[in-house]
Design a protein around this nucleic acid. Structure first.
Lengths: 220, 220
DNA sequence: TGTAGCATTAAACATTCGTTTTAAACGGTC
DNA sequence: GACCGTTTAAAACGAATGTTTAATGCTACA
């Protein structure tokens, strides 16, 4: 039943998924037509509706394919660390959360596709956040929130939420646009590396310092 | 020549601008049709092309109406501070940059419209960043980069760029989505205030700490 | 070998989009 | 009262969209 055509290593369904993922990340979901996807994937237009039913269902399939492994890795990282019994510091928690993203950016078919997709979901025509991001990320975020609260007991629960929110915003944008960075560099150093590794190196101190900044309740 | 109809306080042109701004921020530019704009603004469809020429020109007009005052205020804030002759610390610079955004969110017609628009410009189908955001913000960003470099001389120019980039990402997302914040709070404190003032109070310590975190060159 | 079932194809479907056109009204100014 | 910029109205244009249909190709299994 799983007969693969010899002409391509991927099935029609998988080729649609991979191409849609790339185009969605590049231009956004709304701006990417099914015809653009099927043309780039060398499949028939009707194949999308045949395999997925609708464009919305295709979008959901694209998200699901990446969000599930991401969340699984994030959860596994945290559980492994907590299983050691020792208290976790902020940097360790941040790395456990970010590392799966970087890993997927490094090994993924088209680089930072996932992070671009996630960022898209936060900005595209309403509904994607609630329908995919929230549902998939809910449990993971709760776990990290609790871990972060234990690592920074001086902050109130509200402050923990705010800072995790800031962290997510920083994270998504950090991997999203090299455009702003180049604009900031302004030729002075347009050699600016934007690889996932370099981004991570620059990002971790920023996030850790921001997260551990003094809160409202503290003396200083 | 500036004849206002008695039926409305705003001219047709201004009503189109205000409505387009709101709908763009809500659903994105690509997902907002001219018919939706003209219907919501109670003006004729052809009025858009009459006053602006095209949808793209309307988009540019919407951006320009908000970006110009924002950049002017940001530049004026920094220049006033620098005119005092004393060295500026990081928090002062951050506040000078963020305050115009908060002010516009507070007095603007529909709250955080501007920040949502800016965030949209970073994600919508390619071109908006280069065409509006970059062009308008270029000089402002250079000034703030230099000020920040003087305030944190221990950081390399590259690190300054990275951290300003992170700051912009954090900033845009912070005012963008209350959705993620509520997801994080998860009912434990769904009283979470998301007013511009509260957001600012939570944001400043995060940004200042992140910006002033130790860099690569430092001993610790 | 023949038939059932999934996969792929080409064509057409109905909508919606931005834009243009033509026409008619309204409201000031010279 | 005639001109002119503004606005509304209705209609149509071509292009692009998501979706559906009907026909064909192909493979597996009996």
């Amino acid at each position: 039943m799983d007969s693969m055509p010899a002409s391509s290593a991927l099935s029609t369904r998988d080729r649609i998924l991979a191409t849609a993922e790339r185009l969605f990340a590049e231009a956004g979901i709304g701006a990417t037509s099914l015809r653009a996807i099927t043309a780039a994937a060398n499949v028939n237009l009707a194949a999308v509706n045949y395999h997925f039913g609708s464009k919305d269902a295709l979008v959901e399939a694209v998200y699901r394919r990446h969000l599930e492994p991401l969340n699984t890795a994030r959860l596994r990282n945290l559980e492994e660390l907590e299983a050691r019994g020792r208290a976790l510091d902020v940097e360790t928690i941040v790395r456990a959360f970010v590392e799966p993203l970087v890993e997927q950016a490094r090994t993924g078919a088209s680089g930072t596709t996932l992070t671009r997709l996630l960022a898209q979901s936060l900005h595209e025509a309403a509904g994607y956040v609630e329908r995919f991001y929230a549902r998939e990320n809910d449990a993971v975020l709760q776990r990290y929130r609790d871990a972060m609260q234990r690592a920074i007991p001086a902050l109130s629960p509200d402050e923990i939420c705010w800072r995790l929110n800031f962290m997510l915003g920083t994270l998504h944008n950090a991997f999203l646009d090299a455009g702003l960075l180049k604009l900031l560099a302004h030729g002075d150093s347009d050699r600016a590396e934007t690889s996932p590794e370099v981004t991570l190196t620059q990002l971790i101190p920023f996030l850790v310092a921001g997260l551990t900044a003094p809160g409202q309740r503290e003396a200083i």
